[in-house]
C-alpha cells in the first residue's frame, strides 16, 4: 500500500491505450460520444483510428465487431450503464456468441460503475452490470479497484484476444497496488490483507472501503482480511477457495445489486458447491432503484452498507 496519487481509471487506461496506438497500428478507439481529458490528445493524434459513433451504443458494438473481425484490437468506450444495457443484445450476439468461433478482441470500457455518478440519478447508476455481464459466456469481466491495475490491464487486453468488459469507476481514486507483481490477471484476485477469521471480499470502489475498515479495526485484537476481486469472470475457483477456506466468516461488498448473480452469488455458489462451513454475509444494493441524491456512502446507507453499517457487520 503505497503512494496516495489519485487518478481516474479511465484516464490511466486511455493514456496507456494512447501509448500503445503509437506503435501498434492495429488498435482502434471508439467512443459513443463520451469524452475524458485524456482522450483529447488521442482524438487529435489518431484521427483515422479514433471514431466517435455518436450517441449510438448499439452501433458502437456493431462497428467494433466488424473492425475486430478484420483483425483490429478495439476499445469501445461509453457510460457503463448504457454500453452494457442499451447494447446488451449486440454484445450477446456479436461478441459473446460470435467469439465462440471467431477471434474478436473488443474491449468494452464502461465508465461510471456502481453509483460513481452519484448525483446523476438512477439512469446513470450501473448496479445491474455484474449480474448481466457475468451471464454471457466468452466475455472476461474486469473490475479494477485502482488506476494502476487498470493501466496494466491494457497490455493484457491486447495480448489476450477475445471480448472483455472493463467496469471502471467514474471518480478519481487513490492507488492501492504497489507494483504489477502483486496482481495476476489469470488469478483474478489479491488478498491485500491476510486476516484472522473474518474476511471482506470486495470489488472496485468497495475495496477502498474494505481497506479503510480493515485498517480502522486493526489492533482491536483481530485482523480483518481483505480480498480484492478484480476479475469477476473467469474465476480461478480452486485458488480462490484455497484462500477463502481459512476464514470462518466472509463479508462480500459490492456497489451492485445483491442476491441475483453479482459478486455475492459468485462467492456463495462456490461455498455451497464445496460444502464449506463458512458463514457468508452479502452487502450491496437491495432490489430497488435509488431516487435520492447524496454521496456514495449515503446511497449505500439506504441499503444498509454505509461504512458505519459495514463496521457493525464486521464487528458482530
Amino acid at each position: 500500500m503505497s503512494d496516495i496519487q489519485i487518478k481516474a481509471m479511465r484516464d490511466s487506461v486511455i493514456d496507456e491505450v494512447y501509448s500503445r496506438m503509437r506503435h501498434n497500428k492495429r488498435i482502434f478507439f471508439i467512443s459513443a460520444d463520451l469524452g475524458a481529458p485524456s482522450l483529447d490528445k488521442l482524438r487529435k493524434d489518431f484521427k483515422d483510428r479514433f471514431i466517435n459513433v455518436g450517441i449510438a451504443e448499439q452501433n458502437l458494438i456493431n462497428v467494433s465487431t466488424g473492425l475486430a473481425l478484420e483483425g483490429f484490437t478495439v476499445y469501445a468506450y461509453a457510460i457503463a450503464s448504457f454500453i452494457t444495457m442499451r447494447a446488451y443484445e449486440q454484445i450477446r450476439t456479436n461478441l459473446s456468441l460470435s467469439s465462440h468461433h471467431k477471434e474478436i478482441n473488443v474491449n468494452l470500457i464502461g465508465a461510471g460503475s456502481g453509483v460513481s455518478y452519484d448525483v446523476s440519478g438512477p439512469s446513470h447508476h450501473c448496479i445491474e452490470d455484474i449480474t448481466i455481464m457475468r451471464a454471457l459466456p466468452n466475455i472476461l469481466f474486469f473490475s479494477p479497484s485502482d488506476w494502476f491495475i487498470a493501466e496494466k490491464f491494457v497490455d493484457f487486453s491486447i495480448n489476450t484476444k477475445g471480448p472483455k468488459y472493463m467496469r471502471l469507476d467514474g471518480k478519481p481514486l487513490p492507488r492501492i497496488y504497489d507494483s504489477a507483481k502483486s496482481f495476476d490477471f489469470k488469478k483474478g484476485f489479491c488478498e491485500l490483507v491476510k486476516g484472522d477469521d473474518v474476511c471482506i471480499v470486495s470489488t472496485g470502489y468497495m475495496t477502498h472501503k474494505a481497506l479503510k475498515i480493515a485498517k480502522e479495526l486493526c489492533g482491536k485484537n483481530r485482523k480483518i482480511g481483505v480480498i480484492d476481486m478484480y476479475i469477476l469472470k473467469p474465476v480461478a475457483e480452486d485458488l480462490l477457495f484455497n484462500t477463502l477456506k481459512r476464514y470462518k466468516r466472509i463479508i462480500t461488498i459490492e456497489e451492485a445489486f445483491i442476491n441475483k448473480g453479482g459478486l455475492d452469488s459468485l462467492i456463495s455458489n462456490m461455498i455451497s458447491r464445496r460444502n464449506a462451513s463458512i458463514k457468508l454475509i452479502s452487502l450491496g444494493f437491495d432490489d430497488n432503484y435509488i431516487f435520492k441524491f447524496g454521496n456514495r456512502d449515503f446511497l449505500s446507507s439506504l441499503s444498509n452498507f454505509s461504512e458505519e453499517d459495514i463496521i457493525k457487520v464486521v464487528e458482530d
Binding site: 456493431n62 462497428v63 465487431t65 466488424g66 475486430a68 473481425l69 443484445e89 456479436n94 456468441l97 460470435s98
Partner: peptide
C-alpha cells in the same frame, strides 16, 4: 458462424449493417 462461408451470426435481426460498417472501415 460454424458454416463455412458465413462471416457472422445472423439470427438476430438488425446487426449486419453495423458490423459491415466496421468491416468496410477496416
Amino acid at each position: 458462424t460454424l458454416i463455412p462461408g458465413f462471416e457472422t451470426i445472423n439470427g438476430s435481426l438488425g446487426h449486419g449493417l453495423g458490423v459491415a460498417c466496421g468491416m468496410a472501415l477496416a
